[in-house]
């Protein structure tokens, strides 16, 4: 299993890395900008992408669309992880093709459940 986390804040990367290691014993791959993330997606195969929204250059919502439309990866599961709780932003993320939306603070149980669900099925998991 190979996960990519696109997030510029080192502390958030650190926490999610520890979560992923604890839950599945996997190493979390990280990119600090959407653009770096795209490079990694073109070079390697990932099973899932966790996506921050407030990124330095291209934001996470636009990055989802880019992955779908430009990188032509319609099936790659993308899970948003953001402190942004605005309904517009959440709706736009789903519209652009994310599969789930996790609001910060991240609960480890929630992360586990959503990640496993997204990997198992093609369903879109609504944000609660």
């Amino acid at each position: 299993m190979k996960f990519l986390y696109i997030e510029d804040q080192p502390l958030n990367t650190r926490i999610l890395s520890l979560f992923v290691e604890q839950l599945w014993g996997e190493k979390l791959f990280c990119a600090e900008t959407a653009e770096d993330g795209f490079d990694m997606l073109m070079e390697q195969d990932f099973d899932l992408v966790y996506m921050d929204i407030n990124l330095p250059k291209m934001n996470g919502v636009d990055a989802v669309k880019y992955i779908r439309d430009v990188l032509k990866q319609p099936k790659l599961p993308i899970v948003m992880v953001s402190a942004n709780t605005s309904e517009n932003v959440i709706a736009k993320s789903y519209e652009n093709g994310c599969r789930a939306y996790i609001k910060k603070p991240v609960k480890i149980g929630n992360l586990k459940e959503i990640t496993e669900q997204v990997l198992k099925t093609d369903e879109i998991i609504p944000c609660i």
């Binding site: 520890l18 942004n84 709780t85 605005s86 609001k103 603070p105 991240v106 609960k107």
Partner: peptide, 24 residues
Amino acid sequence: SSMSHELRTPLNTILGFAQLLQIT
């Protein structure tokens, strides 16, 4: 909504590490 964002960011750190301590 900005306030909510600003509160969630440090809370993510607090709850994140606290959960790690709890499950380890």
